[in-house]
Design a protein around this nucleic acid. Sequence first.
DNA 1: AGTTGGTCTATTGTATGCCAAGTTAATGTC
DNA 2: GACATTAACTTGGCATACAATAGACCAACT
Lengths: 228, 228
Amino acid sequence: MAIAELNIAPIKETPSLKARAYRAIKSAILEMNIYADETDLRLDERGLSQRLGISRTPIREAISQLDQEGFVRIVPRKGIYIIRKTKAEIHDMITVWAALESMAARLISKGADDGDIKRLRALVDQFSQDEVAAKTGEYSDANIEFHQAIIRMSGCPLISEITDGLFFHVRAIRHRSIFKLDRARRSIVDHKEIVAAIEARDTERAERLVRDHTMKLRDHVEQYVELD
Amino acid sequence: MAIAELNIAPIKETPSLKARAYRAIKSAILEMNIYADETDLRLDERGLSQRLGISRTPIREAISQLDQEGFVRIVPRKGIYIIRKTKAEIHDMITVWAALESMAARLISKGADDGDIKRLRALVDQFSQDEVAAKTGEYSDANIEFHQAIIRMSGCPLISEITDGLFFHVRAIRHRSIFKLDRARRSIVDHKEIVAAIEARDTERAERLVRDHTMKLRDHVEQYVELD
DNA sequence: AGTTGGTCTATTGTATGCCAAGTTAATGTC
DNA sequence: GACATTAACTTGGCATACAATAGACCAACT
């Protein structure tokens, strides 16, 4: 009797309930525009447990993780509150972002291979200045994408890891006019200069341009975004 | 009838079992010199629960936090393993450290008041070059202290928060000859130059010196420390 | 009407039991 | 004796029950 050779793929391991709960809650928070209204936003363990159809334990573990990452705050016997970052905290986050991304630019200009740099050039050329005027909406994501590309190319996963968290927080306030038209236009110019510096392997210049570019965003937020 | 005015202080809130378990386990790991031997170091939920006299739940929450911070790794149905960082990971951590501390130096040279800078000068003067030859042992901590002072003075709590985690990891391998005599001597010189640049409010120079100083440590580890 | 103490409810913290999936040791077969 | 098989044990994941406390509500009393 021949043994049937079923062409089956290995069953991918099911992620733990904790992991799934974590993603579910986190993405729900991201889609919420938490800075839109003023009232305190609360999470309810048991409510989530019922809606997700699992027990409180994995929910608690997921929420505990979100607490540690600074997305929610657990107050014993009172509740779990979604955190709105203060202006000072956003300010600090963008500062850290600037520090890490400028280091990434430094690493790239020293170590990246030409293929990567070509791809970076393609990314920035894709958005010419007049196109952007029409579709600023898309720009916000393209902007983030450019920054993430630089960071990934640095070959330092830890930098990616840290900045991913920062981007998440910053993205939550994007509708508060962070990436407006004039800034978008100016950003394209900055990005082109950055790529040019990297292409020229001018480490110091690349680092400085990246830092200044992000610090300009910081100052913009400082000046125009109201949060507290 | 008068109301008695009892002179009482508010009852300080007792930290949760989770928080206490977290500190207990973390400090135990720190004191362990995990890089000393080769065997896999495992944690046991039930064992800890018995030894600490509490149930598994707060233990699990504490361990989950340590897992997220990168101190242990939870492998389902196998065990909880204390993590030894690879050389590449240490390398990345020091890179991030350099990026953040050089940003801190930048912020200080722009914004710190003269009192703070005086204290920084005192800190570095305290360890003259010949003293250090005698007590290199103490130097390691004084070294870290100097760096932490710079970071704290930056006025950016987020930078402190991130680097604290990095320091914890790096400290775990300090006995692996990271801070040896010749390096210690050279470090003092570097530190003095850094303070001088800050005193002169020379932002670019301060940033560069701090970065280069930490990157030298990175290269030193790269060259002399064996981990994997 | 206002205050005061009790009670009830909502909500998180903790303990404990069970389960599925590995690990290890014992056992049986050749 | 070597190897496959199975049984016992380990271990983290998850569910559930109970405990503790903050805050709302309420009734009684002044």
